[in-house]
Simulated scan of single mutants.
Amino acid sequence: MKSITIIDDEFSIGGFTSGNEGIWTRNAPTDPPTADYISLSGSLEVPLMRIVRPYQASGDRVEIVHAEHGGMGVIKDNVLKKVDGIVTAEKGIVLSVLAADCVPIYLIDKKAAVIGLLHCGWRSAAGSLLHNAVQRMKELGAAPAEIQVITGPHICAECYEVGEEVRKVYAEAFTKKQLEKIFVLRNDKLYLHLSEAVRSKAAAEGIPDENFSDINCCTFHDKSLYSYRRGDRGRQNSAFIMMKA
């Protein structure tokens, strides 16, 4: 198991972990919580009823969650279906998403006391996921100039080979100058720099570049983390964040 602390200050705590088994998803909504969520609950000293996990779909949908969403996707069924981002203004609620190469994006506005967490694959990075998250955070009082963006562990540009069809999608979403930073051509192969795509999207939302940071940890390189591209199936890492009470 590997656990990485993303942020831990007076305002919030956030992390990324492979868990003991890498199994976070139950086979049925009536199944008991997985051992890894039980372990996460214990380490955070937060009841399972305060942890929320959406059913992800590699899309652009973002929802605001409240205390009544607690336990969804962890110990009970979920109304957060086909949702890849969740935000909240309530303290003590643990937002969590699963990832095994995609980018977990941590969003923090300390001034407004609003946080968010996104599961961002290559399609979402070129799409409206971050925009929608910022809009939801603004509904709760956040301001783009105050939002801190942290990209957590994900497959890096040295490892993430993609096809020409991906570049065509990105060509419609980014400028030529941005594409020069997002894609790397090496030995006639094309590689995607996901965190640079997220950085460009953040700038478009009015988030200052100094508010953006990347953990610089690759899920493909680091064999103590799970990677879909490396061949891990049925096992994932969990990203989480919570405002402290």
Rank of each mutant, 00 (worst) to 15 (best):
G92C: 11
A28L: 09
T25K: 13
M72A: 12
V62P: 00
H66M: 08
A99N: 05
A89T: 01
E68G: 08
D109C: 10
V103F: 01
R50E: 07
D109Q: 11
R61M: 10
V103W: 01
A67T: 15
K111A: 14
R123I: 09
V94G: 03
Y55I: 04
I51N: 00
I75M: 15
V114Q: 02
H119N: 14
V74W: 11
L48D: 03
K81Y: 08
A99E: 05
S58M: 15
K81G: 09
G59P: 03
S96F: 03
A57T: 13
P33T: 11
L44E: 10
V74G: 06
T25G: 03
D109F: 05
A28K: 14
I115D: 07
I23V: 14
D60Q: 11
L107R: 10
N78F: 05
A67F: 13
P33D: 14
I115H: 07
G71A: 14
E45R: 11
G73I: 08
E90P: 00
R61N: 12
V62Q: 05
G116Y: 02
D101Q: 04
S43M: 02
I93W: 08
V65E: 10
P47D: 07
P33N: 14
I38V: 03
T25C: 06
Y55C: 02
K76G: 13
D109G: 12
L44G: 11
L117F: 08
K110L: 08
V83T: 15
A35S: 04
M49G: 07
E45N: 15
P32G: 07
H69Q: 13
V83Q: 05
G59M: 07
L44N: 12
L118K: 05
I93V: 14
M72P: 00
D60M: 09
I105W: 07
G71Q: 13
T34C: 10
R26H: 12
L44V: 13
G70L: 06
L44P: 08
D77M: 07
S124Y: 04
W24T: 04
M72S: 14
E90N: 03
S128F: 11
V87K: 09
A100I: 01
D31V: 01
H69I: 10
N78V: 10
I51P: 00
H69M: 11
H66D: 15
P32T: 04
L107G: 03
E45V: 12
E21I: 05
A67K: 15
A126Y: 00
G127Y: 01
V83H: 07
R53P: 02
V97E: 09
A67W: 13
G59I: 12
W24G: 07
A112F: 03
A35P: 01
N27D: 08
S128A: 15
G70P: 05
S43L: 04
G70S: 04
L48W: 02
D109K: 13
V62G: 01
P47W: 01
G92S: 12
G92Q: 10
S43P: 02
R123D: 07
G92E: 09
D31M: 07
